[in-house]
Design a protein around this nucleic acid. Structure first.
Lengths: 151, 151
DNA sequence: CTAAACAACGCAAATGATTCGCATTTGAGT
DNA sequence: ACTCAAATGCGAATCATTTGCGTTGTTTAG
């Protein structure tokens, strides 16, 4: 059983967002709702540009940036970095800490989620050996997908 | 025995760079020499800005960018990405493919090299399961170093 | 030895992602 | 509905990186 099968968690409800926002003196606004809905409709990490493009409501790009930062602080979304200089965000399901990895095709940029994370033991070992605390890691795989191998 | 103990390889000589450049109709110039010397004097990945700053010869920042891209293509240096939006480069020793990882302090940004890479088997498994070829990975660890724990 | 041919450089301007300032709008509670 | 702080939209600023181009310095053909 994978450590984080977040795809089987119940997706967060917009009403939950509303409640958590109010509890923090924040507001449940159109753009924030729109951003969350766009993320909920996509299973893979999205760039801010893409989120903005799918947000038909015509809200400002800067607003999407601000909304995603807020959602990240609230741990409703998680930021991923595929090393191409563009941040990507993924919606977190309830109870998911978002710790997982991806296999990214260097040809067509398609993305596969990797649920397994065998890195726990190594993480602890590396922390202990170097006297570090609260060690985490970022890990992504890159390769050529079946389709791109044909070309 | 670690898979890549590149610190025990003989460092590349400037004359080797000169030879490889000439063989490729490229030129062995002051800035390229300076960049390589700066990298050789530092054991950890350096940002382009830092390389530029240590290059006393006063060469242009754009030239440092170009020199590092060239050295990367020639596989004399390797690019690392610590997820902060700034590229970092490390000199490769002879015979080193540069595949290793880092443990980075989130407090003071100090860097420790991690020679071990236990990820080979997983890499193959993930490649096979998804039909991908030529799979590689990027892995970096983040935590709080002993010094920064005191504060 | 000289000149054409070309690689690199320096400088400045362009790009792309992200952030910020600020006037205006709007959600949430009274 | 009224009020007020939080959010938005818009434009301008910032930061890393790239590019265009005129100039300089080598290399090579004659």
């Amino acid at each position: 059983m994978p450590r984080h099968d977040h795809h089987h968690h119940k997706p967060r409800l917009l009403s939950e967002l509303a409640a958590r926002l109010r509890g923090d003196a924040k507001r449940f606004t159109g753009p924030r709702k729109a951003v969350l809905e766009v993320l909920a409709a996509h299973p893979h990490p999205m760039t801010i540009k893409d989120v903005h493009a799918e947000t038909k409501s015509g809200c400002d790009l800067a607003t999407v940036y601000r909304a995603l930062h807020l959602l990240e602080e609230m741990r409703l979304v998680k930021r991923f970095d595929f090393g191409d200089g563009v941040a990507r965000f993924e919606l977190l399901a309830e109870g998911d800490d978002g710790h997982h990895h991806h296999l990214i095709c260097t040809g067509c940029s398609s993305v596969i989620e990797i649920e397994e994370c065998f890195t726990e033991a190594l993480e602890k070992k590396i922390a202990d050996q170097n006297g570090f605390k609260t060690v985490t890691h970022k890990l992504e795989f890159f390769g050529v997908c079946p389709d791109c191998q044909k070309v």
